[in-house]
Simulated assay, not measured.
Amino acid sequence: MRARFWVGGGLLAAALGLLIVNGLRSASQYYLTVSELKARAASLQGRPIRLSGIVDGGTIRYDPETLHIEFGLVDRVADIGKVPPLKVVYQGVKPDLLQNEAQAIVEGTLGPDGVFYARTLLLKCPTRYEEEAATGSSR
């Protein structure tokens, strides 16, 4: 009777551990940089990707009638105007934070045309937060 208890408990603990490991593995997805994506473009086409980069403000195009947004991403602020940006296409309302030098995280797929088709778009404008922190003001 006691052996059954230990065997059953061990099997239950192993199954629970396996579920936790598989859940964490499928939920954890790291970010690729623009240069990493460009280097591995052929092998990543059509696969779900999470990409992080800096918005090149000179490339932002928005059509408010169709809600079509296009913009370019580079790895660093210093790359703007010096390195060809990766073209990103997103369908949706233009976020207020979509501006030059904003940090963007996009999730989507890389098309065979070399364009990144984003399903989700998250933006952070570091200069706004740095200025507020420096002055000590908060809204």
Rank of each mutant, 00 (worst) to 15 (best):
L24I: 12
A102Q: 04
G72N: 05
A3N: 13
G23V: 10
A78C: 06
P84C: 07
V21S: 07
L18Y: 09
L16S: 10
R76D: 11
G57F: 00
F116E: 00
Y117N: 04
I20K: 08
F116S: 01
D79I: 03
Y30I: 09
A102H: 00
D56N: 14
A27D: 13
L121A: 00
L51C: 10
A104I: 03
I20Y: 06
G114H: 09
L121T: 01
Q45V: 12
L37G: 01
L18E: 03
L123C: 05
K94N: 01
G81K: 09
S35H: 05
V93Q: 15
A118F: 04
V55F: 00
R139A: 13
R2Q: 14
G10E: 03
L121H: 02
I20R: 04
D96V: 04
P126C: 13
A15E: 07
D113T: 12
L12D: 04
Y117H: 15
L73N: 00
R128C: 13
V21N: 07
Y31Q: 05
T127R: 12
Q103C: 03
P64I: 10
V21C: 07
D96H: 04
S26I: 09
Y62N: 02
P64Q: 11
A14W: 13
E36R: 03
A14S: 10
S28R: 08
D96W: 06
R128L: 14
P126W: 08
V106I: 10
L86P: 00
I20W: 09
A14Y: 08
G92H: 11
I80K: 06
T109P: 01
L86F: 03
E101D: 12
P84R: 15
Q45Y: 08
Y129D: 15
L19G: 09
P126V: 11
G23H: 09
V115F: 12
R139M: 10
P64M: 10
A13T: 15
P95Q: 12
G57T: 01
S138C: 06
I105N: 07
P84G: 02
V77A: 08
Y129A: 11
L98T: 01
G46H: 13
F116N: 02
F71G: 00
Q103V: 08
V83H: 03
E130I: 06
R40F: 02
D56E: 15
M1S: 13
R25S: 05
D75V: 02
P112T: 08
G111Y: 13
L11T: 03
W6T: 06
L11I: 14
